[in-house]
Simulated scan of single mutants.
Amino acid sequence: MRFEEDDSCMDEDDQFIRRILVNNFSLSDYEADVYISLLRTGKQSMADIAGSSGVPRQRVYDITEKLQDEGLVEVINESPKHAYALPPSDAFQSVQDEINVAMTHMEDMYQTQEDIGTEIAMFKNEATIENYLERIVEIPSVTISLTFPYQLLGKYETIFRQIPDDVHSKCIISNVPREFIEDQTINLESVTTLASQVRGTPKEEPVAICADRETCLLWIGHPAHAGPNTSEGFHITSPEVSFLFDRFITDLLWSQSKPIRLSEHVQELPRTFLRIKDCIEYVSSVRELGTSETLLVEIEGFDTRRKQPISIAGELLDYYQSNSDIRAYLVINAEDHDSNSGNVVSVGGWNSGIEDYEARQITLRDKNIKNNDDKN
């Protein structure tokens, strides 16, 4: 009696295997019955297979030949003809390999995320975190700040080198091996062109990347982490939260890290900054090298007294910044659009209260280059 006609003669394992073979491997009912019979009994003649499987003997010959073509059984052309099942681990290895490849691709595609809020999403899949890492470097139009472990640079360095040259980038390399640290500097020339400004620290830090102070990626438990590799990533689109992470990187971590980049390297003007301290650091480098005598400043921000948006421009006269003081400001001779007369004003950074204006965006230009452009 065939298994299909009376499943009661099959144990639960046989029923389960038969269902898998028919539903998932496209075997016919007869083919599944013959294969299970050979798995159970080993080498058999065609007559024995017909008896143990319940499949008509005239069909057994064709079925065993087809199963041999599928790589599931081996047919012995002797008299009488026999057949036996190949080890399942060998017979289904190619299928298993294809499943593994497919699973890898699907894991890469799958967006494993848990919404924590409308502006924060958490990812637990490392491939998803890597996808967001590639995306975030394409976002900034003005500035990007990041911390990244030395041990992962080999894998991800090409991603960071896609950041456009006109985007001001500040990079802190964490987990720097002690052999690269010399007094107050880090001897790691291979990363000096990774960003506009590069520093390093032997301390372990999470991966944190902030684009334009509006979008942030935080990767905790990354592969270079000393503890368990939990690979939890957070994609943050809240400007308020991203702003705090940017301050954490550019103020706290930056002040605690050691310089890597050579001071002689200064990127060309014009350049745009969101942080006034970045602007002043650039101006200091320009003045030290004597590459530009007169700088023009364009400010987009707020009037600290009137609490109104402003746009001003003028010649840079002076600036102030100190490691022991949280204040930083520019002094410019602002153009008076009504009378064309000069007006010396002070411009501070975020949350300024003493200065005349609070800068949200600062653009530096070389006066000589601008004049040449105007003539053209």
Rank of each mutant, 00 (worst) to 15 (best):
E358K: 05
W350I: 14
V331L: 09
G342M: 06
D356C: 06
N333I: 04
L330A: 03
G353H: 13
W350L: 15
S346G: 09
N343S: 14
I354S: 14
D336W: 00
A334Y: 00
N343T: 10
N343D: 13
Y329W: 12
H337Y: 14
S339P: 05
G349D: 01
V344Y: 05
E355L: 06
E355I: 04
S352W: 03
N340A: 11
I354G: 09
G342Q: 09
V345E: 06
V347M: 08
G348W: 02
G349C: 02
S346M: 10
N343V: 07
S346T: 14
D336F: 01
N340V: 09
S339L: 10
E335C: 11
G348H: 00
G349Q: 02
A328V: 05
I354L: 15
N351C: 14
I354A: 13
E335Y: 14
Y357K: 04
S341D: 15
G353I: 14
S339I: 07
G342C: 04
V345I: 14
H337V: 10
E335A: 13
N340T: 10
D336M: 03
S341A: 15
G349R: 01
L330Q: 03
L330V: 08
A334P: 01
Y329N: 07
A328M: 06
N351D: 15
E335P: 05
H337M: 08
I332K: 00
A359D: 06
V344W: 04
H337E: 09
N343L: 08
I332P: 00
V345M: 01
L330W: 01
L330Y: 02
A359G: 07
D336I: 04
W350Q: 15
Y357W: 10
G342N: 11
Y357G: 01
G342R: 05
Y329A: 01
Y329H: 10
I354P: 07
G348P: 01
D336C: 07
A334Q: 02
S339G: 03
V347Y: 05
A334T: 02
G353V: 14
N351A: 13
W350G: 11
N351V: 09
G348Y: 00
Y357M: 08
D336R: 06
S352M: 10
D336Y: 06
V344P: 01
G349H: 04
E358Q: 12
N351P: 10
N333G: 08
W350E: 15
V344L: 07
Y329T: 05
V347L: 10
